[in-house]
């Protein structure tokens, strides 16, 4: 008699319990996706002897392609915020890469800098696999003047953010260089940020 009266409630409780257990099990088994760390063997060495390529005139980059890790991304200009910190494309558009526009453009003499998110709250972002690049991999940048500058990777390394190698990234370079920058290392839940930056060093070869 009791069972009949309470049957709907019993079923509801059983369903709630089953669903709860299922969600807990799936939560425990879902490992957070963490970006790959650069291989120590690919640490940057002295830039390769650059081929005798004449520098290109200034032109905004519009697209970047990194075939080795399947990146094909639109590029938008970025600079720095009011506090002087490098801007990155908006988090709600994690597939975009940003070009540090106060610096040189890809193909000009000097280091051009492209920055992109490693991930967003919804999953991996445009430069998630940057740490997987190896010396000799290719990066192609399409420019607004329809030209394509091809770069070859010289090295990849991770640096703590408080020891960011500004000189190597933004400093002078007698040839056309490219720097790809994203986050890496451990994600610090308290600060809501990664502790490292991953930097890819490349030199124009075509």
């Amino acid at each position: 008699m009791w069972w009949r009266r309470q049957a709907p409630a019993v079923v509801a409780v059983a369903l709630l319990g089953t669903a709860g257990l299922g969600l807990i099990a799936s939560g425990l088994t879902a490992a957070p996706t963490r970006p790959p760390r650069p291989d120590a063997a690919d640490a940057p060495v002295t830039a390769r002897p650059a081929p005798s390529l004449p520098p290109l005139p200034r032109a905004d980059p519009v697209r970047v392609e990194v075939p080795a890790i399947g990146v094909r991304a639109e590029v938008v200009p970025v600079a720095a915020d009011a506090a002087g910190v490098l801007e990155v494309p908006p988090l709600d558009r994690p597939a975009l890469a940003g070009w540090y526009s106060p610096g040189v453009s890809p193909g000009e003499t000097g280091n051009a800098v492209l920055v992109g998110h490693v991930d967003s709250p919804t999953g991996p972002a445009v430069f998630f696999d940057l740490g997987r690049l190896r010396r000799g991999d290719t990066v192609r940048v399409t420019r607004a003047d329809a030209g394509v500058a091809t770069f070859t990777v010289d090295g990849v390394a991770a640096y703590p953010k408080d020891r960011f190698p500004a000189e190597l990234v933004y400093g002078p370079n007698p040839v056309a260089g490219l720097r790809l920058v994203t986050c890496g290392g451990r994600f610090d839940e308290r600060s809501g940020d990664y502790v490292d930056n991953v930097v890819v060093f490349a030199t124009r070869t075509g």
């Binding site: 998110h117 490693v118 967003s120």
Partner: peptide
């Protein structure tokens, strides 16, 4: 710019 790039938000799908 000052320091490194704040280019990650943590994968919320953990």
């Amino acid at each position: 710019p000052i320091g490194g790039a704040p280019a990650g938000a943590g994968d919320g799908t953990d």
